[in-house]
Structure formats: C-alpha cells, structure tokens
Simulated scan of single mutants.
Amino acid sequence: MVEHAHTHPHEHEHDAAVATEPTPPDARPKLAVWKFASCDGCQLSILNCEDELLQIAESIHIAYFPEATRAIVAGPYDLSLVEGSITTPEDVKRIHEIRAQSGTVVTIGACATAGGIQALRNWADVDEFRSIVYAHPEYLSTLDTSTPIASHIDVDYELRGCPVDKTQLVEVLAAFLNGRKPRIPTYSVCVECKLKGNVCVPVATGTPCLGPVTQAGCGALCPSYGRGCYGCFGPQDSANTEAMTRQLAELGMSNADIVRVYRTFNAGSPEFAAASDQAAAASSTGGPT
C-alpha cells in the first residue's frame, strides 16, 4: 500500500510522495465458530471468557463468529469450534463443508459431542411431533435423529459439558496455539469431589448421583451443594453403567426414573444410551435392570 504524506498548504505540489512498507497479511491462525442445533450456551461460554478471550485474540484471528461479530473472513480456517448437533439434511451437508475448510475441528458441548437434549427424538416418533407442534409440518425438513458431529465427520477433539467449562475452553485454545495436546481430565466427578473434600451425597444422604460414571470438568458443582450429579459432562472414559444402575436402584429409583436420568443432556452418548435402553427394557417387563 502506498500512502501520500500530508503536506503543508504552502509546500510545493511536486514534493515527493512518501512510500510506506506494504501492510503484512495477518499471520495469526484463523478461528471459526459454528452453530448447529443448540441453545447457544457454549458460544456464550466463549464470550464469558472475557479477559482471557482478549488475550487469546492477540494470538488468533477470530475470522467467523456470528454471535460475537458481523465481520466475516473467508476460509480456510486453522481451527473450527463447532456447537450443536446434526438434526437436518442441510446440517449434514454443511458439517462436511466445514470439515473440508478446517485444519482442526473441536466440538464443544453436549449437543456437539452427544446429540444434546434434542437426542430424545431418537426414541420418539418425529412425524408425530411435527404433526402436533407445527401447523404446516410439510414445510419442515428434519432427520429422525439428533446425532453428534463425530457421527458425520472426523473430529480432532471433543470438549464436553452443558455448557462447556470456560477454563477447559481456554485450555483447548491455548493448547492449539502452542501445538500441544489439551490437558483435559477423563476421570470421574468423584475424583473432583475427593479433591474438594466433599461429603459423598449418595453415601451421606442417599441422593442418587451420576458422579461415578460422569467425566470431570464441572468442579463437582452439584455435589458441592448437596445435589447429585446429573451427568452434564457425559460418560467418563471407563464408565461402569451397570454398577451405576444397580446403585441407583438401591437408592430407590424406579426403572422409569433411571431411564430419565440417563436420557438428559448426553442421551445420545453410546454408554448412557445403552444404559437407558437396558433400564427401559426392564421397565417394560417389570423386572430388575
């Protein structure tokens, strides 16, 4: 780019122009944030990073993030954060396009990693829903299932939670910028309870709690206030759901209640889906799980 120097009104017109160096292209890696079927809570978690996000923005170019800015920079993108599950034929096409123009894809939140609360449709009649809810269901184009992003494309990393934990989110971004693997725990919420010195709510009060089979990351938020964990971070890496189901039954939960506790934010995760199916089968026969 060539700029002309500002001249004093009395200076001669033939004074030479001042040439500057060309503006270098933005060398920062480009970040894109995409939304599919979701509540936007995980994108809000990004915005809630506040000071941390400002520091990260110095090292990464936020090229596409409609929730934060109207500015759009064309791809390809070095890092894509994807929120939401796949629920329409258009979603399937779009997620493949995103994968094609993204160097690294990280799915964020329960919707993107396990189908989200909308995965409850996987056990229901979607046509019946449409006929009841919508005046003109013929205008809708939807799938019978809600599925995680990894069911359709290769995903480089999954970040759990409903919503994602902002500390873990910053860790993933920092790890990407430094070319290392994120340090995200895969052990259970029970470990977090022990680290915080929490009293075990199932043992102390008989409160049903999914902590033993749920991945850490929330800081044992619910048990810290005397509530049972309800599994918003999904199954941990070695979830023993059979033992968990037996304990829930011993704590007084019916088979129908056990089905419901597994079918929440991470209903579409294979471990929780299988456990809920087993409890549902037992409920229909009237026998134990």
Rank of each mutant, 00 (worst) to 15 (best):
R70K: 11
I62D: 04
Q278K: 14
P235K: 14
M253T: 05
D78W: 03
E83V: 02
A16I: 12
A175D: 10
C209L: 11
Y64I: 02
D257M: 12
I86V: 06
G41F: 03
T207C: 10
C222V: 00
A216Y: 02
G197Y: 04
P185W: 09
S151Q: 10
K93W: 05
T167L: 12
A37P: 00
D125Y: 08
L195T: 06
T69R: 10
Q118R: 06
C209V: 08
L221T: 14
A174M: 13
H4S: 15
D78P: 02
T289V: 12
T87G: 01
P66I: 05
P270D: 14
A112W: 02
K181E: 14
A17E: 14
Q215C: 08
V172S: 02
H8V: 03
A239M: 09
E3C: 04
L120N: 05
S45A: 15
K166E: 14
T7K: 09
H4Q: 15
Q118D: 11
I132G: 04
T207F: 06
P288L: 15
A57Q: 13
Y225Q: 15
K196M: 14
H10W: 00
Q55L: 14
D26Q: 03
N48Y: 04
A282H: 12
P185V: 07
I258F: 13
T147Q: 10
C111Y: 00
A112Q: 05
Y225K: 15
H96V: 13
G161R: 02
E21T: 04
L143T: 01
E58A: 14
D277V: 14
G84V: 00
R99M: 07
L44W: 07
S102W: 08
A17H: 12
L143H: 00
L53A: 12
R260D: 08
D144G: 00
H96D: 13
S146V: 01
A68M: 13
A110Y: 00
A27H: 11
T147I: 09
A63I: 08
E21N: 07
Y157N: 10
M1F: 04
Q215Y: 01
D26T: 01
A57I: 06
I46R: 08
A274E: 15
T214D: 01
V33C: 05
G84H: 01
C218Q: 01
I108W: 00
T145W: 05
A281H: 12
Q168H: 13
C200V: 08
A174D: 15
A100W: 03
E171K: 10
A216C: 02
P66H: 12
A124E: 15
Y187N: 14
T147M: 07
I56K: 10
E250H: 10
G109I: 01
V199R: 15
H6L: 13
T23Q: 09
C111V: 00
C232D: 03
R130W: 04
Q43D: 03
R227L: 14
V82D: 01
I72S: 04
E97S: 07
L177R: 06
F65V: 01
E21H: 06
C49Y: 05
T113N: 05
H152S: 09
T186L: 13
G197H: 08
A220P: 02
A220H: 02
V203F: 13
L79M: 07
H96K: 15
E271Y: 10
E97Y: 05
G179P: 03
A63T: 10
R28C: 11
S85E: 01
Y134S: 04
Q43I: 03
Y139Q: 09
A204Y: 11
A74L: 01
E250P: 06
D156F: 12
V261F: 03
